[in-house]
């Protein structure tokens, strides 16, 4: 485990904690896309099938359980919690999941490293994770005055992806035969999706004004 990978995982963990903090403490999910959260739950459910078949490390297993547990509980909160569900921007969060899920599934069926159930599911989860943030970005664009926690949540998620790229560069030079084209391309595409958000995030931070994305 290198420092970029660890920092990436910790940033990812922090993003989930920020979101849970907002939902659990403030009892609000305003500005949070349920569509994106459901896609993440699906991403982790399809990616971590190996949690029961392969043991990598205690760290690995614990983190997988955290991401599975947190993503499903966030979805539960937004859909079913008596108070939280009332703050959900249902009319604004209109992105259709299947527009992302079906192309990702088709791509995974044709472009993968090995044609086994677990491997195709794993590849599907990579493709889906790359685009799962889109409903959230669309919702942010529609929301005037993005609150701090939601802005930080998306920023931390983007930072996590960026750090993973540094992790792959590091591993490429330090580990023999570490070549994973599918992971890398999906990861770079995912990070690029945040470029626009990052620009406005830093602008608002620099000028000390509330984050707002242009329509």
């Amino acid at each position: 485990m290198n420092i970029f990978r660890l920092a990436g995982d910790m940033t990812h963990l922090a993003s989930v904690l920020v979101l849970l903090l907002k939902i659990h403490t403030i009892k609000s999910c305003a500005g949070v896309s349920l569509k994106t959260q459901e896609l993440y739950a699906l991403v982790f459910a399809t990616r971590y099938l190996d949690i029961v078949t392969d043991f990598i490390s205690v760290y690995n297993t614990v983190m997988k359980l955290i991401f599975l547990g947190s993503s499903f509980s966030i979805v539960w909160y937004i859909r079913h919690h008596r108070v939280v569900r009332r703050s959900y921007d249902k009319d604004q969060d209109t992105f259709r999941h299947y527009l992302l899920m079906i192309p990702c599934m088709l791509l995974a069926l044709f472009v993968h490293e090995k044609f086994t159930f677990k491997e195709v599911m794993w590849t599907f989860s990579l493709y889906l994770e790359a685009v799962a943030i889109l409903p959230q970005l669309v919702l942010l664009q529609r929301t005037r005055n993005i609150d701090n926690l939601t802005g930080q949540y998306v920023f931390l998620l983007g930072a996590y992806r960026g750090l993973y790229i540094f992790n792959w560069i590091y591993r490429y030079f330090t580990e023999p035969h570490f070549v994973h084209w599918i992971t890398w391309i999906a990861g770079v595409v995912q990070t690029l999706l945040y470029a626009d958000f990052f620009y406005y995030y830093f602008e608002s931070w620099k000028n000390n004004v509330r984050l707002q994305l242009p329509a």
Binding site: R5, D54, I56, K114, Y164
Partner: peptide, 10 residues
């Protein structure tokens, strides 16, 4: 070395 069967990243 990471193989395609064992993915050690999250």
């Amino acid at each position: 070395v990471q193989t395609s069967e064992t993915h050690d990243e999250l």
